[in-house]
Each structure stands twice: as structure tokens, then as C-alpha cells.
Amino acid sequence: MADERDDDHRPPPGTSEQTVDAVGALTAAFEVVEHARGMLYAFHRLTGRADKELAEALDQLAEAGHQDLADELRAELVGRNVLPGRWTFQVVEAYDEEYYRVFEAAEQRVCDELMAGRRHVYEAGLKEQNRTHGRPGHEPTPEA
């Protein structure tokens, strides 16, 4: 059966299947990093939300007649660092600068050098192997 992948998803001429598999594994690892980064941003947003809700709860505690306790907890918790010297935005920035961008550049370099800049070549090969040729909903490309 003919390979109906578009040129953007076909391995460059002379590229071994072993190389395609290795690049696919590297891309899969980077996708996990993307997921972790999303979870880190969720952590950032949730922590900020918790801090805001804490401040509101302490306002309610003060209004209920517990001003001293509310003031003590506000001084201890509201605006507190989540890691030594860092709020969550600083954690996100450090992750982005020290890990994410380095990994992203490495994955791009491998795709550029070994796949002629083509992305998801491994996955496109899986699609070609697993789809039912000629069946609706199994077209090789969007325009097919």
C-alpha cells in the first residue's frame, strides 16, 4: 500500500526507521515536559487563587470578632513565599529559563538536523500504518 503522508510528515530521504523512532521518542519526552509546564502554570494560578481566598477568609474571621487571630495568620501566610525567596511566578520563570527552553531548543535542533525540520514524522507513520485506507474518517490528510 502506498504511503500517503504529506511531505511535511514523511521522513527525509535516507532516514532510517531507527532514527525516526528515536526522534519520536525525544518528541514524546518533550510532550511530557509540555504537560508538566502546564501543570506548573496551574500550580501558579491555584496558589495565587488560594492566597486571595485566604485573605478573604481572614477578612471574614476579623469581621466575626477574631481580629487578632486574623492579623496573626495574615502576617504569617498572605503573600508568603512558596519556596525560599520565591513566589510561584518566580518558580515558573526559573523552570522556563533553566529547563523548558533548553529542552525545547534541543527537540527543535534534533527535528531540524535529522528530520529536515519536519515535526511528528513518527506519529504520521503510525497514522499511516493504523488507518483504514479508503474509509471515511481515515483520510491521510485534511484536504484528502
Results as ranks from 00 to 15, higher is better:
35 H>T: 13
35 H>K: 11
35 H>C: 05
35 H>N: 08
35 H>V: 06
35 H>R: 11
36 A>Y: 04
36 A>E: 09
37 R>H: 13
37 R>N: 08
37 R>F: 10
38 G>D: 04
38 G>V: 04
39 M>Q: 15
40 L>H: 01
40 L>F: 05
41 Y>F: 13
42 A>Q: 09
42 A>R: 10
42 A>P: 00
42 A>Y: 06
43 F>E: 05
43 F>M: 13
43 F>N: 02
43 F>P: 04
44 H>C: 10
45 R>S: 08
45 R>T: 06
45 R>I: 03
45 R>K: 10
45 R>V: 05
45 R>H: 13
45 R>A: 09
45 R>E: 09
46 L>T: 08
46 L>C: 03
46 L>M: 12
47 T>P: 03
47 T>V: 14
47 T>F: 09
47 T>G: 03
48 G>H: 04
48 G>C: 04
48 G>N: 02
48 G>I: 01
48 G>R: 03
49 R>A: 12
49 R>H: 12
49 R>M: 11
50 A>E: 08
50 A>M: 12
50 A>R: 06
50 A>F: 08
50 A>N: 08
51 D>P: 03
51 D>G: 02
51 D>R: 05
51 D>Q: 11
52 K>F: 07
52 K>N: 02
52 K>C: 00
52 K>R: 13
52 K>E: 14
52 K>P: 00
53 E>T: 11
54 L>Y: 01
54 L>R: 07
54 L>T: 11
54 L>E: 00
54 L>W: 04
55 A>F: 03
55 A>I: 03
56 E>C: 00
56 E>N: 02
57 A>W: 02
57 A>D: 13
57 A>I: 01
58 L>A: 11
58 L>V: 13
59 D>T: 13
60 Q>I: 08
60 Q>K: 14
61 L>W: 01
61 L>T: 11
61 L>V: 12
61 L>G: 04
62 A>H: 10
62 A>E: 13
62 A>R: 09
62 A>T: 06
63 E>A: 15
63 E>K: 14
63 E>L: 12
63 E>F: 02
64 A>N: 11
65 G>R: 03
65 G>Q: 07
65 G>D: 06
66 H>P: 02
66 H>T: 00
66 H>I: 01
66 H>A: 11
66 H>R: 15
67 Q>F: 00
67 Q>L: 10
67 Q>E: 15
67 Q>I: 08
68 D>A: 15
68 D>G: 09
69 L>F: 00
69 L>H: 04
69 L>M: 13
69 L>K: 05
69 L>E: 13
70 A>Y: 07
70 A>V: 10
70 A>E: 07
70 A>T: 06
71 D>E: 14
71 D>L: 08
71 D>M: 02
71 D>Y: 00
72 E>M: 11
72 E>N: 09
72 E>G: 02
72 E>K: 12
73 L>Y: 05
73 L>D: 01
73 L>V: 06
73 L>R: 02
73 L>F: 05
74 R>P: 07
74 R>A: 04
74 R>W: 06
75 A>C: 04
76 E>T: 12
76 E>V: 03
76 E>F: 05
